[in-house]
């Protein structure tokens, strides 16, 4: 396994050849799944996630019966990892139901509740199914990104993009800093980097449209079991918001492209009628 020390050997490059603030290649497909109301497929490097959205529809199952809060819509999230998804080559025993996926489901729900205009869907339910097909680090963040895209594809009104991005604190003073205002930590960690000692912070943010201001933090999920000292948090936050901003513009671009591609003929058709 490549160790974190490698960074020293590589003149400040990370094990896979990126620099500290570089993301992996992001590829997006929307509307991949005809049966669902909305779907999206997202690749962040080797992390590959498929998200489908059903609804809004009548509440069903246990969530439906518990209608204590009828003034707002209900979001139901299910996060599952394919048994073959682990990049270490082992097989996972169960795709879902373990603690990790349950926690992820819950966190995903929080993120989604934050962006959907739930007040316009009383007495209804929106299902979001996330399937991680291949996992190579930052999978939770990628699934948030995918879910946002799937919601857009489903035509559910949202307030803003919910963007997930990880920042990993690698203890390495020699790491090259392109921007000194953002102190340390590398963005969008892959599996190897997540395994290094240090903190991996998964952050979901609602970045603003104009790239100057950076705010709107909602969900923070913490990865590796080390403690993070408060003094380092601010600089990590600055970095990760920078990353979120980048991902947002990539996704935004992809959405617009998809819409022009998809919508033009049908609009044309409507116009003709």
């Amino acid at each position: 396994m490549i160790e974190a020390e490698n960074i020293e050997d590589q003149n400040g490059l990370r094990p896979d050849g990126r620099r500290a603030l570089e993301l992996r290649q992001i590829r997006v497909k929307m509307g991949v799944f005809g049966q669902a109301d909305g779907s999206a497929y997202i690749e962040q490097g080797n992390t590959k996630i498929l998200v489908t959205v059903y609804g809004p529809h009548q509440p069903r199952g246990s969530t439906g019966r518990n209608t204590s809060n009828i003034s707002k819509g209900i979001v139901n999230c299910q996060y599952s990892m394919a048994v073959f998804s682990l990049s270490s080559g082992e097989r996972k025993r169960k795709p879902r139901g373990d603690r990790k996926s349950q926690e992820r489901s819950l966190q995903l729900k929080h993120a989604m509740e934050a962006i959907i205009h739930l007040e316009i869907y009383p007495r209804s339910q929106i299902d979001i199914y996330v399937e991680a097909l291949q996992v190579d680090g930052s999978e939770y963040c990628a699934s948030v990104n995918g879910a946002t895209l799937a919601l857009i594809d489903a035509g559910i009104p949202i307030k803003n993009y919910a963007i997930g991005c990880t920042v990993t604190l690698i203890n390495n003073p020699s790491l090259e800093d392109e921007d000194n205002t953002l102190e340390k930590g590398v963005l969008d960690a892959n599996y190897v980097e997540e395994c290094t000692p240090g903190v991996t912070l998964s952050v979901v943010a609602l970045p603003n449209n104009d790239s100057t201001s950076k705010d709107g933090l909602i969900v923070v999920a913490q990865g590796a079991g080390q403690r993070l000292h408060l003094s380092q948090f601010e600089s990590l936050k600055a970095r990760v918001l920078y990353g979120c901003q980048d991902i947002r513009s990539i996704l935004d671009h992809a959405v617009r492209e998809y819409l022009t591609e998809q919508s033009l003929p049908s609009l044309f058709h409507v116009a003709l009628n």
């Binding site: 003149n11 050849g17 490097g45 080797n46 990049s87 270490s88 080559g89 082992e90 892959n190 190897v192």
Partner: peptide, 16 residues
């Protein structure tokens, strides 16, 4: 022992 297939990304750069 067991043979696993590990896939890793390897980025090539032009700014070195």
């Amino acid at each position: 022992g067991n043979v696993f297939k590990t896939v890793r990304e390897h980025y090539l750069r032009n700014d070195i």
